[in-house]
């Protein structure tokens, strides 16, 4: 506890880095997964291909991805962009299926009504299907957030600064307190992400909290 308090500045700084490395890819991944999920939901022939391919991305080991990306992107090994890109890939892998499932969850008669009222394809997605898919997408986003926070810590093995540093450093110095501080800080950060997503989802879906007649 004293150790943590003595190093509170360092912990907060690395937590900020960690949040950036895990959070930005969450947003980027969602932006990419939305059109992919929409395609998967709307085009039966593309569905299997898209969902299998994106799903497989998640099976690439993170350490391998951190090392493979620099030559592909032309970045240096220590560049945080590598981590951002890798985490975005994982987010897309998790969210494409979720977005497709969310769009599938929209009631058939609601969709028929929207078509019959003269919504174009994109307008219907934006005004009807997407808002109704928010609860499902938010659930997927929570999984992706926790997964991102956890995977980002691995990047300390290639020297990227974030909370994972306390795990590798504590292990190297045989100093369990530091390892525990790293674990607890990661946990707290994951909780904060989870809370933020839940709050945003609640704000976007006032209709889900109404009492049935």
């Amino acid at each position: 506890m004293t150790w943590a308090l003595d190093h509170i500045g360092d912990i907060m700084f690395r937590a900020g880095q960690h949040a950036w490395l895990a959070g930005l890819p969450l947003v980027l991944g969602l932006v990419i997964a939305l059109p992919l999920g929409w395609l998967a939901a709307r085009r039966p022939r593309l569905r299997a291909l898209l969902l299998t391919t994106t799903g497989l991305l998640y099976t690439i080991p993170s350490l391998a991805l951190f090392i493979l990306l620099p030559p592909l992107l032309g970045t240096k090994i220590l560049d945080p962009v590598n981590v951002i890109v890798a985490m975005t890939v994982y987010t897309v892998a998790l969210l494409t299926r979720t977005v497709a499932d969310g769009l599938f969850s929209v009631d058939g008669s609601t969709q028929q009504a929207a078509i019959a009222m003269g919504y174009g394809s994109f307008a219907r997605f934006r005004a009807v299907d997407l808002p109704l898919a928010v609860p499902v997408i938010a659930a997927g986003l929570r999984v992706a957030a926790v997964s991102n926070v956890s995977i980002v810590s691995v990047s300390s093995l290639i020297g990227i600064s974030q909370l994972g540093y306390f795990l590798t450093d504590g292990y190297a110095r045989s100093f369990p307190t530091e390892v525990w501080v790293g674990i607890v800080a990661c946990l707290l950060l994951a909780l904060v992400f989870d809370l933020v997503i839940q709050v945003v989802s609640r704000v976007l879906t006032p209709w889900t909290r109404t009492v049935a007649a």
């Binding site: 003269g118 174009g120 009807v128 109704l132």
Partner: peptide, 30 residues
Amino acid sequence: VAELRRGIGYVIQHAGLFPHRTVLDNVTTV
């Protein structure tokens, strides 16, 4: 096709209302 549909009122069995919109906003859709 969009113009055609906006000019035709359509009512279906389970109403097909938009669950995320209030009654007022459902009615103002078209």
